[in-house]
Simulated scan of single mutants.
Amino acid sequence: MARKKGDGVTIVVKKYEEGGGGHHGGAWKVAYADFVTAMMAFFLLMWLLNATTEEQRRGLADYFAPSNALSSGSSGMGQPFGGTTMNSVGQMARDAGAIRAERGHNPTRLDIEDESDELEQPPTSSRQGPPGEAEEAQRTVAMAQPGQPGGGRQGAGRDQGAAQAAARDSDAARLTDMALRAELARREQAAMEQAADQLREEIRQNPATAEMAQQVSVEITPEGLRIQLIDADGQAMFTSGSAQPNDRTRALIRAVALAAARLPNPIQITGHTDSVPFRGEGRSNWELSAERANAARRLLTEAGVADQRFRAVTGAADRDLHIPDNPQAAGNRRVAITMLRLSDAPRATPAPTAGDRAR
């Protein structure tokens, strides 16, 4: 149908209103801001707890929760924290609001109190009785003191008894010390005898040293356990005129090192020669004997003997002959290795017999 001229035009207006629901709203922002504020307060509290001392925290607690509700502030100064900061030195808390107990005057008694409390008990009389055992003992001791009546003779007797007791104690201590020394000497003697028997057995059982058993002397002397390596005709321990040991001497000294390892005693080594003059310019039997003793020391050290155990290494030349009747005999050339005693009172032993030497 045709529209007539002059008819109005219909205009339709549509309005869209956005709602506040869903994630497009602004309520979450308020909640997030509260959360951030709470977290900031929490971290601030943690920082304060870490940055303050125990005394400062006590001052903070007393300020916000004073112990005296009637006072305006527990600090007594009208200022926060008692006028100090957390960086100040000293106690933050003040005791103005604390309860203090002070000693005052005695309370006044009232008339309304019980009159029975004011009644005084009648005094009781004491009666002297016979002395007991304690009193009797005290009187006896007092009478025995010097200067007391009748105590002079008893005091002198007591002094004499004390002197006798002191003398007995001194004798007992002396006997105890002597007994201890004797026991130590006995044990050391037994240890040396056992080491000597083991050394003789090892030399006999070892094929490398069995044929030289006759050239090894093992004996107990007042100085200690002495082991001598002695030359024989045709069987020398060292090369003639030198301090170079042969293979058999090395084997014997290794056996001696095993015996030395069983004892803690210090070691002394002495070299000896016969009376035949040394054939060499600028040298004598003194140098030769000392060099052989030092060579034995080096062999013992190589076998495991600690160097701190050596007390002395000397050469005696021909001044201490093993066979005095024949100064030029081969038996005078020897090296003596002695394990010295540790005890103060060594036991005297008889002269060595044939059984004291290894066979």
Rank of each mutant, 00 (worst) to 15 (best):
Trp28Asp: 13
Ser275Tyr: 07
Gln160Pro: 06
Asp62Lys: 06
Gln164Pro: 00
Met192Glu: 04
Gly22Arg: 06
Arg94Leu: 05
Phe43Lys: 03
Thr140Lys: 12
Glu120Asn: 13
Val141Pro: 01
Ile203Thr: 12
Met40Trp: 00
Leu184Pro: 04
Met339Leu: 15
Arg200Gly: 07
Glu291Ile: 11
Gln154Tyr: 02
Val305Ala: 04
Asn68Arg: 15
Ala98Ile: 02
Met40Ser: 13
Gly59Val: 00
Phe64Gln: 01
Gly315Asn: 08
Tyr16Gly: 09
Val13Ala: 13
Arg283Gly: 02
Phe278Arg: 10
Gly132Trp: 08
Thr10Trp: 14
Ala27Gln: 03
Ile203Trp: 02
Glu302Ala: 08
Met339Glu: 06
Ala137Cys: 08
Leu263Phe: 02
Arg109Gly: 01
Ala38Ile: 10
Met86Thr: 11
Thr176His: 12
Glu102Lys: 12
Trp47Thr: 14
Asp320Trp: 06
Asp117Glu: 14
Leu110Ile: 06
Gln154Arg: 14
Ala162Gly: 07
Glu136Trp: 04
Ser116Tyr: 04
Arg181Trp: 09
His23Val: 10
Phe42Met: 07
Gly6Ala: 14
Gln79Arg: 11
Arg109Trp: 04
Thr10Arg: 14
Ile323Asn: 15
Met178Thr: 13
Asn326Lys: 07
Asp117Cys: 12
Gly304Ile: 09
Ala295Asp: 07
Gln154Asp: 05
Ala306Cys: 03
Leu180Lys: 09
Pro207Phe: 03
Gln228His: 07
Ala182Thr: 13
Ala210Ser: 08
Arg357Ser: 13
Ala190Val: 11
Gly331Cys: 04
Ile11Tyr: 13
Asn285Arg: 09
Arg309Asp: 03
Thr124Gly: 11
Glu133Ser: 13
